[in-house]
Simulated assay, not measured.
Amino acid sequence: MWLSLLPWGFVLLGLLPLWLFPRQESIYPGLVFLLAALVLAAAASLYARVPLGPQVRFFWVLGLGLMSSSMAVAASRDLAQIPEDLAVVASVASLMGACMFLIGLFFLLQRETPGLPSPLQMGFRNHDGIMPYAALQALAASLETLSTVRPVTLLLLHTRTDQPGAELLQYLRQPDMVFQLKPGQFLIVLQGSNLEGAQVVFRRIRQNLAILAYGVLPLQGISVQQALAQLGGELQHYYLAQH
Score class of each variant (00 low, 15 high):
Met1Gln: 02
Trp2Arg: 00
Leu3Ile: 10
Pro7Asn: 00
Pro7Gln: 01
Pro7Thr: 02
Pro7Met: 00
Gly9Pro: 02
Val11Ile: 02
Leu13Gly: 14
Leu16Pro: 01
Leu18Asn: 12
Phe21His: 13
Phe21Asn: 06
Phe21Arg: 09
Phe21Thr: 08
Pro22Ala: 11
Gln24Phe: 07
Glu25Pro: 03
Pro29Met: 01
Leu35Cys: 00
Ala41Glu: 00
Ala42Glu: 08
Ala42His: 09
Ala44Pro: 10
Leu46Gly: 06
Leu46Arg: 10
Leu46Tyr: 11
Ala48Gln: 04
Ala48Pro: 03
Gly53Ile: 01
Pro54Arg: 04
Pro54Gly: 02
Gln55Ser: 05
Gln55Cys: 02
Gln55Met: 05
Val56Gly: 02
Val56Gln: 06
Phe58Asn: 07
Trp60Gln: 04
Val61Ile: 00
Val61His: 00
Leu64Asn: 12
Gly65Gln: 07
Leu66Asp: 08
Met67Ile: 12
Ser70Pro: 04
Ser70Thr: 02
Ser70Ile: 04
Ala74Phe: 03
Ala74Glu: 02
Ala74Trp: 04
Ala75Asp: 03
Glu84Trp: 12
Leu86Cys: 02
Val88His: 05
Val89Ser: 00
Ser91Asp: 13
Ser91Asn: 14
Ala98Asn: 02
Cys99Leu: 03
Cys99Gly: 04
Phe101Asp: 00
Leu105Gln: 08
Phe106Tyr: 14
Leu108Val: 02
Leu109Gly: 05
Leu116Phe: 09
Leu120Phe: 14
Gln121Val: 08
Met122Tyr: 06
Phe124Pro: 09
Phe124Tyr: 15
Asn126Asp: 05
Asn126Ile: 01
Gly129Leu: 14
Met131Arg: 09
Pro132Cys: 14
Ala134Asp: 09
Ala138Lys: 04
Ala138Ser: 06
Ala141Arg: 06
Leu146Asp: 05
Ser147Asn: 11
Ser147His: 11
Thr148Leu: 15
Val149Ala: 09
Arg150Val: 15
Pro151Phe: 14
Val152Gly: 10
Thr153Lys: 10
Leu157Val: 13
Thr159Glu: 12
Arg160Gly: 03
Thr161Tyr: 02
Gly165Met: 06
Leu172Gln: 14
Arg173Glu: 15
Arg173Thr: 12
Met177Trp: 13
Val178Phe: 10
Gln180Glu: 15
Leu181Ile: 03
Gln185Ile: 06
Gln185Phe: 07
Phe186Glu: 01
Leu187Pro: 10
Ile188His: 07
Ser193His: 11
Glu196Leu: 11
Gly197Phe: 07
Gln199Pro: 04
Phe202Asp: 12
Arg203Pro: 05
Arg204Val: 03
Ala210Ser: 10
Ile211Arg: 13
Ala213Cys: 06
Gly215Leu: 08
Val216His: 08
Leu217Met: 14
Leu219Trp: 11
Gln220Cys: 01
Val224Ala: 11
Ala227Phe: 05
Ala229Asp: 13
Gln230Phe: 05
Gly232Ile: 10
Leu235Asp: 08
Gln236His: 10
His237Asp: 14
Tyr238Asn: 12
Tyr239His: 15
